[in-house]
């Protein structure tokens, strides 16, 4: 009897959180990244399998794309879980999971595109001359400055907006895809310097990935009075100082 009651409570809790399958996928992405990081570290490559993500050859480009997609799933999808939940709760039951999957795929597409462009940009910068230290400090300074702009704050707020979803059919599918792309666009505006930072550091570094993900998620969930972006700005400023001093 007690077991049935507990099972019902779990079922009700999961019903209120229809995004839980996406949470599972994100968790699996993190596990995969940790495994890859540990295995590459044991081989002596501390920046991991995706170090600098240099897409010089087709194979390397494919690996970089895969690595970046995995990283986007782990880092950026957690920031959009409220939107995934919105899609789930506002879709009819029989198309709920399809709608959420469509949303997440549409959300990831712009991030992967951005990642490829970021990797190409970093490669071009490296070939242009600045050393790793200069590249890191420069990217951190850009990230801190971006945190202070009104565009940053506006895009953080815009990430919380929703769009109307028709009940069924192709209109509903289009609306889910449009919502995903629009949300990703807002989040790219909000977080592009942070992901550029990952392109510089190398997207195999799970410790920095975890720290940045935590910072972004806290920023997205913060409703405190005053600046929404202050905590992450402070952390990035501290990282900049550390990078300069350690150079």
């Amino acid at each position: 009897m007690a077991g049935r009651s507990s099972a019902r409570r779990v079922a009700v809790a999961l019903a209120w959180r229809p995004e839980w399958p996406v949470v599972m996928v994100v968790a699996m992405a993190w596990v995969a990244l940790v495994v890859l990081y540990v295995s590459s570290s044991s081989q002596g490559a501390h920046t991991g399998y995706g170090s600098h993500g240099d897409p010089a050859t087709l194979a390397a480009f494919g690996a970089a794309t895969g690595g970046w997609t995995l990283m986007s799933m782990a880092m950026m999808v957690p920031t959009t879980l409220p939107a995934v939940r919105h899609v789930g709760l506002n879709s009819i039951r029989c198309r709920r999971r399809w709608a959420m999957a469509l949303y997440v795929a549409s959300y990831l597409a712009p991030w992967v595109t951005f990642g490829m462009l970021a990797l190409l940009l970093v490669r071009a910068l490296r070939s242009a001359g600045p050393d790793e230290q200069q590249l890191l400090v420069g990217t951190l300074v850009i990230a801190v400055m971006w945190q202070l702009t009104k565009w940053k704050r506006r895009s953080v707020v815009a990430c919380r907006r929703t769009v109307p979803l028709p009940p069924a059919g192709w209109r509903a599918d289009c609306a889910c895809a449009r919502f995903g792309i629009r949300q990703a666009g807002r989040c790219v505006v909000s977080c592009w310097p942070l992901m550029l930072l990952m392109a510089v550091i190398g997207h195999g570094n799970v410790i920095i990935m975890a720290a940045l993900t935590l910072g972004i998620v806290v920023e997205q969930r913060t409703w405190v009075r005053g600046s929404l972006t202050a905590p992450l700005t402070g952390a990035l400023a501290a990282a900049t100082v550390w990078a300069v001093l350690s150079g």
Partner: peptide
């Protein structure tokens, strides 16, 4: 129990400009 389940909705947005307006739910 679980969250309410959506059973019907409009397919397009609607604009109100002062008069009466009716919309069908699918």
């Amino acid at each position: 129990s679980g969250p309410p389940e959506m059973v019907a909705a409009t397919e397009r947005p609607v604009e109100l400009v002062g008069g009466a307006r009716s919309v069908p739910l699918r």
